[in-house]
Every structure is written in C-alpha cells, then in structure tokens.
Amino acid sequence: MIEFLKNLDRRWIFLLMLLSVAIPILLQTQFEETPSKLSIAVFDQLEKLEEGDKILLAFDFDPGSEGELGPMATTFVRHCCEKKLKMYFMALWPVGEQMIVDNIARVIKADFPELVYGTDYMNLGFKAGNEGVIKVVLTDMRQLYTTDAEGTAIDEIPMMQGVDNIKAMDLMINISAGYPGTKEWVQYAVTRYPDKITLVAGCTGVQAPLLYPYIPQQLPGLLAAIKGAAEYEKLVMDKYGKRDADGNMDEEGKYFEGRRRMGPQLVAHVLMVLLIVVGNLIFFAERRREKRQ
C-alpha cells in the first residue's frame, strides 16, 4: 500500500482534483455563508454613501483571475446601481477595460437599463503607466484622460464636470489581481491623502496576505478571494434581494456566482488537506522503515 502510494503517479492526484471541483459544480451545491468582519466593512462603506455620490471602480484584473474576481466585480456594480451612485470605471490593466465592458453589459445594461452613460456611469478605460497613472489621476485626471474609453472628449461628459481628480470621489473600489493593484493604490493614493481617499478592495487569494499589513488604517475593508466574494454577495443580496417583484430567479444566477463556487472550494480544500496528510503519513512510515533497517 505504502509502496503504491509512494510511487503514485501524479496524474491520479490530478484526477482527484478534477473530480472534486467538477462534481460539486455539476450538483450545484451551495453552502450558507457567514460574512466576516472585513466583508461587512466593505459592505458598510458602500452603504454609508448616498444617492448621487461618486464612486471610482478600478478594475485591475484580467480573464486569468476572473474566476475569483468576476463575482466581486458583478456584485460591486450591482450594489452601486442599487445605491444609485455615480460610477467611474477605470483600469490599469490593459484587459481590465474588457472586464469593465463585460460588467457594464452584464449588470447595468441588462438589469438597470434606466441608467444613462455619461450621467450615471462612465468608463475611463485603460491607461498604460501603472503607478504613474495613479499619481497623475490624483492631481489632474485630464493630463492623461483626454477622452473616455469610447473616444468621447472628457469635457463633453456631464458627470466629469467638476471632477479634477480622484480626490473628488466619495469612495474608491479596487479589484485587483496583482501589479499594479491594491498595493499600489494604497501606497500612492491612500498613503498620500489619507483623509481624502477611502479605499476598499477585492483581491485574489494570493494577494490577500500581502494586504493585511494595511488593514484597517489604510484599507478599511477587503474582500479576500472567492470567499470574500461569496460573503459580500450574501450581504448585498440579502439586503436588495431579487429584482423581480414575483421573486423570479431568471438571470439572477450571476449574483450567486461566488456562493456557487464555494461548493467546489470546500471539497477541494478538504482534498488538499487530505493530500498533505496522506503525503506526510507516507513520508513518516517510510522514515520509520528506513530507521529500522
């Protein structure tokens, strides 16, 4: 048995991983979420805002991380729409712009068709320059953004009137998959203007540990990985519920994406723990045998 496990072809492990993710997806298992403090903090920051307040949504991720961050982005946009905030989208990742367009189509155009581009939301699009862009938008947006993502001159957009820089925003949301991302926003924006800029973020699991040193002084709320997304989804959906008066579930599934993913997540996590335990059992059995010889 030990011999077999010791020389186990890693493809069997691959298969186990595949099954542990695939089966919960096919069975569509879901679990109840208990929101953590950090997710509630994010939710509260948005709840504090009033109708017409300005919010900057920086989408710094790409399809590679959509699995983790897509659900957050969708729910953030939904929450902003429900609160009737003025949304300014921007991206430091080239592909981030695509993520913005996707979410505008998925949430705003599909479920909130009454919102008008240019007065209720706008897309500043992608600008190259990483943290350089952050520094510039802090003082003078027009230096970089002469037009929006569609090529319309900035000054022709009603909701850009009176917005010189991002200090005009009442809250800022960053969804980040790496560099440049939340860390840079904290370093270059929040650290410089702690009173003017409030930032909450959603990030991938990889980044979460690196962002903890900034909590809560520089970063009051953080959605960490898919679990954070699931918790936040619950908070938003519990408060705002389903759009249809008759409780119709049609098209609502997109707001449960995070919670849906927690099913495979649980099984796979348990598998990981088991793999480590079994791996170690083999290791120690092996070592004991060597000692005896």
Binding site: S65, E68, T204, A225, I226, P264, Q265, H269
Partner: peptide, 8 residues
C-alpha cells in the same frame, strides 16, 4: 483558494 476558483 484562488487557484481552485480558477479551475472552477
């Protein structure tokens, strides 16, 4: 945690 979400 993140990697599994990507596979999902």
């Amino acid at each position: 945690m993140g990697r599994i979400a990507l596979l999902a």
